[in-house]
Structures are given as structure tokens and as C-alpha cells.
């Protein structure tokens, strides 16, 4: 058992994490569309039904509200349901159950009903898909009291964070950057001690400006930092990891040093996470700021047809452009 390391993709890391969670607690159930024999359309639940049976890895009818609503009942009965919403844009039929029931039952019942549920949502764009398959709905859930929202940017975090989310007693919206599922492999040490779930992480130290990213944009921010370094600019990159609650102490510490912050997300800029983060940085670091906090994100249009998505998504150049504007302010 000891010294278990392997090179895994995000998809594999999540799959291994789910398996660990199911082994650790037989109350953990998986439910969703095609999660059984097929292993999910992205294969995240591959092989789990074979090993844990149809009672624990449940292929559901094609009804998202039904999936989340029945998961509420299972959680009331003492189970820890992990539901998969097949794609971000298909979560809306379940929106009422998520914001009116999942998020509120603990509050409504004065803590007598617990909702230890994880709602896994593959999110973000860049896969050349048709409409509704590339969206970033995180702000809608982060805006809802009663929910917690996290996102992993890499295989190692995927492995640990999914287990931590399942073990957590509050409902967690777990966003998975689908573009990264089958991208590069990373060394995973299963014996390591993971960081706590609701913490952000400095993933590249720097001194001239702070770039905040999460999920799919962490990779973009890291690339931007690399290019900037070649041009003599030192960027600090922080992977936020948790979107609700936000863990901004490391961000404040960073911005107090750099005086500049750029937030990068794929979601629309208007009232996106970046708006809240900018407000909080302004409140906490007002006298340290050398420039206003800038936001780089999807434009305030619906997600475009895929031949245009690379224009729409914040890329390396748009991040660097914002960094330049911040530095020149």
C-alpha cells in the first residue's frame, strides 16, 4: 500500500478518488446519466458499477431535477449521494432543487437535516462542442447561501478534492474542467497529505502582479506567467480552488506585496466571481493597490459556436494584455 505513486490524468485522478471514497464509506452512492456500464460520457466513473454494483452506481432516467431531487431524499435517509450532471448547461433543470432544497434544507430544519451531497459538473469550454456543453455556471451557485463550490485544476487536486468533498457534511458543487480531463498526466502520490478542501494555493510565486485563476484558467495563467517571465515580468499565480467560501487570505497577502491583481475565469465577467473578488481585494488591500483589480473572462454574450470559442475564452494573450494594463496604470 505504501509509496503508491502513478502518473494520472484528471479523469483518472477523479476516478481513483471516487473509488477511494466508495471504499471508505458504503453510504457513498453515485448517480447520474450513463454513469454505470458506460462509465459516464467522460469515463469518470469507469469501472465503478462493475465493482460496487448497480445499487451504488445508479444509472438514472434522463431528468436532472429528478437526479438531484431523489438524491435529496437519499441524503435524508443517511446516504452520501454523489451525482453527476452530464454537462454544465444541463444543470438548469435541477436548479430549483439545488437552490431551493439542497441549499436550504439544513437551514430550514435548523440543522436537523444534513445534506452531504456532491454535485459533480464538468464545466468550461474549449472542446469544440455544440451549445450548452461549454458553460461556466459557478457564480450562480456561489451566490446561493447553503452551497459550497469548489473546482480542481489538476489531477492531484482532483483525486484529493473529490474525496474531501464527499466526506464533507455540507452540499458541494464540484466543478471539473472538462477540457483537462484527458490532457497531460501528473505524478500522484496517494500517501501524501492533501491541503484542506476550502483553501486556495499559490501555484507560482512572483512579485510584480498577482493572477487569480481556478479550474481551466489555471493552466492559462501559468502559461502567461511563463511567457511574462521571459519578458522580465514576475507573476504570482494563485489557484483559488474554493469559490464558495473564497479563501482570500493568501490573495490579500500576495496583493499587498505586488499591488496588482488580475482575475481570470471563463465565466462572463458581469457579476462573475471576479467582481466579488475585486470588491474584497479593494476592501482589504485598498492602500496597497497600485491599480484597479482587472477581470479577464468570457464576454457578456452567450457562449458562441465552437469555431469562435478560442476568441471568446480568455487566453494567454488576453491575460498578458490585462497584466500590461495593470502594470501601466
Amino acid at each position: 500500500m505504501a509509496g503508491t505513486t502513478s502518473k494520472v490524468t484528471l479523469a483518472k485522478g477523479l476516478n481513483m478518488g471516487l473509488r477511494k471514497a466508495m471504499e471508505a464509506d458504503d453510504k457513498v452512492l453515485l448517480m447520474g446519466e450513463d454513469v454505470g456500464k458506460l462509465g459516464g460520457v467522460f469515463r469518470i466513473t469507469d469501472g465503478l458499477q462493475k465493482d460496487f454494483g448497480e445499487d451504488r452506481v445508479i444509472d438514472s432516467p434522463l431528468a436532472e431535477s429528478g437526479i438531484v431531487g431523489t438524491a435529496v431524499g437519499m441524503a435524508m435517509r443517511g446516504y452520501r449521494p454523489v451525482v453527476e450532471i452530464q454537462f454544465d448547461g444541463f444543470v438548469y433543470p435541477a436548479y430549483d432543487q439545488i437552490v431551493c432544497q439542497v441549499a436550504k434544507l439544513h437551514f430550514r430544519s435548523q440543522g436537523r437535516i444534513k445534506m452531504p451531497m456532491v454535485i459533480r459538473i464538468p464545466f468550461g469550454g474549449g472542446i469544440g462542442a455544440v451549445e450548452h456543453h461549454s458553460e461556466s455556471p459557478e457564480a450562480q451557485f456561489a451566490h446561493t447561501p447553503g452551497l459550497k463550490v469548489v473546482t480542481c485544476s489538476n489531477p492531484v487536486d482532483g483525486y484529493w478534492m473529490i474525496q474531501q468533498a464527499i466526506a464533507h457534511d455540507d452540499p458541494v458543487i464540484f466543478l471539473e474542467p472538462k477540457r483537462q480531463y484527458h490532457a497531460e498526466k501528473t505524478e500522484l502520490d496517494e500517501d501524501a497529505t492533501p491541503a484542506p478542501l476550502f483553501t486556495s494555493k499559490v501555484v507560482r510565486p512572483g512579485s510584480d502582479a498577482t493572477v487569480l485563476a481556478y479550474g481551466p484558467t489555471v493552466k492559462t495563467a501559468m502559461k502567461a506567467a511563463e511567457v511574462a517571465a521571459g519578458e522580465g515580468t514576475s507573476l504570482e499565480v494563485i489557484d483559488l480552488r474554493t469559490l464558495s467560501p473564497l479563501d482570500l487570505d493568501p490573495v490579500f497577502a500576495s496583493v499587498r506585496r505586488t499591488g496588482r491583481a488580475v482575475v481570470v475565469h471563463e465565466a462572463h465577467v458581469n457579476l462573475g466571481l471576479g467582481s466579488e473578488i475585486a470588491a474584497r481585494i479593494t476592501e482589504e488591500c485598498f492602500y496597497a493597490l497600485e491599480a484597479p483589480v482587472l477581470r479577464v473572462g468570457g464576454f457578456d454574450t452567450p457562449y458562441p459556436a465552437s469555431r469562435l470559442e478560442e476568441e471568446w475564452l480568455p487566453d494567454l494573450d488576453r491575460v498578458l494584455d490585462a497584466v500590461d494594463r495593470s502594470l501601466e496604470f
Binding site: G66, G69, T70, V72, G73, D96, Q101
Partner: peptide, 23 residues
């Protein structure tokens, strides 16, 4: 259960609870 104000939302909870009973 507590009263559910959103019309019909509780019927899904009922089915999920019943699925838990099966398990």
C-alpha cells in the same frame, strides 16, 4: 418531513428516501 412550499418538489425527495429504504 418539513413542509415543502415549492409545489411538488417533495415528491422527488420521497422517491429518493424510498430508494434509500430499498438499500
Amino acid at each position: 418531513n418539513l413542509y415543502t412550499i415549492v409545489i411538488g418538489a417533495q415528491t422527488l425527495h420521497a422517491v429518493g428516501y424510498a430508494m434509500g429504504m430499498q438499500r
